[in-house]
């Protein structure tokens, strides 16, 4: 029995290793999606630093709550001008915005995917939690000891603002260390994302410091996550209008 306990994982590892060598691009992507969605829910504090081309920084902070793939509550906490502004994202592209100065919420349209999110270099599409395997067809274009480089072409039926992505995936954790985004029309690289710190917190891999550069405007956004907690057991009504207005 004890032996079994030892041998089984060992076998699994060996098998896994063997499989790894021959892993197809699709399998890698499936694995990535699994890693990305491994937790039921997640909350964190966010620090967003915006840096313009002249190097001028502006900082804002927010709290983030997430459940599953399609529920998110985002609330700014600073600067004072934006504190309290909240965004609730629900399934089927339903999104609400709460403006504290008006003490009113309004449903907003998030269908314009190419729009920048709150002045950052992330567009609404980049903020989506959606699993990447569902949207893109992967192809391995490079491989070394530590990473794979995948070229991701959007599936025919998918609406996206990019012509392709090139993702660098760490072999050890199936977590993307960097993504290059290519313009839909020109096919030129337009943005570059780098995950500077990838940590395992409560058994889940997460990038705690992410940098996005808009290569055309030379504008940069750095998102840093702290106080990350997984599996908080959020109820569905924590992602409701009542909660948004709090």
């Amino acid at each position: 029995m004890k032996l079994k306990i030892i041998i089984l994982p060992l076998l699994t590892i060996v098998f896994w290793q063997l499989q790894l060598n021959a892993q197809t691009a699709q399998e890698i992507v499936n694995e990535m999606d699994e890693v990305a969605t491994s937790a039921m829910d997640q909350m964190a504090d966010l620090k967003i630093t915006l840096i313009d081309k002249s190097g001028k920084e502006s900082i804002r902070t927010a709290t983030l709550k997430r459940k599953g793939n399609d529920k998110m509550l985002f609330r700014f906490t600073s600067p004072a001008a934006q504190a309290g502004i909240s965004i609730l994202s629900l399934p089927d592209e339903v999104m609400y915005l709460y403006l504290p100065a008006y003490a009113k919420e309004r449903r907003i349209n998030a269908s314009t995917k190419g729009q920048k999110f709150a002045g950052t270099d992330f567009c609404y599409e980049d903020m989506e939690v959606a699993t990447i395997g569902e949207k893109y067809t992967p192809k391995i274009i490079e491989e070394n000891e530590r990473t794979w480089k995948l070229e991701m072409t959007p599936k025919a039926e998918i609406r996206t603002v990019y012509s392709k992505l090139i993702i660098e995936v760490n072999k050890n954790n199936y977590y993307a260390s960097g993504i290059e985004f290519f313009h839909k029309k020109s096919g030129l690289i337009i943005k570059k994302l780098t995950n500077h710190q990838i940590e395992k917190i409560d058994g889940h891999w997460i990038a705690t410091k992410t940098e996005m550069i808009d290569l055309k405007s030379n504008h940069k956004t750095i998102m840093e996550m702290t106080s990350i907690k997984f599996n908080n057991g959020f109820a569905n009504d924590e992602f409701s209008l009542r909660e948004l207005k709090k």
């Binding site: 001008a81 934006q82 502004i85 403006l99 100065a101 729009q115 709150a118 002045g119």
Partner: peptide, 9 residues
């Protein structure tokens, strides 16, 4: 300031 938030970017 709240409205401005929507115009950023």
């Amino acid at each position: 300031l709240n409205l401005w938030f929507l115009l950023e970017g």
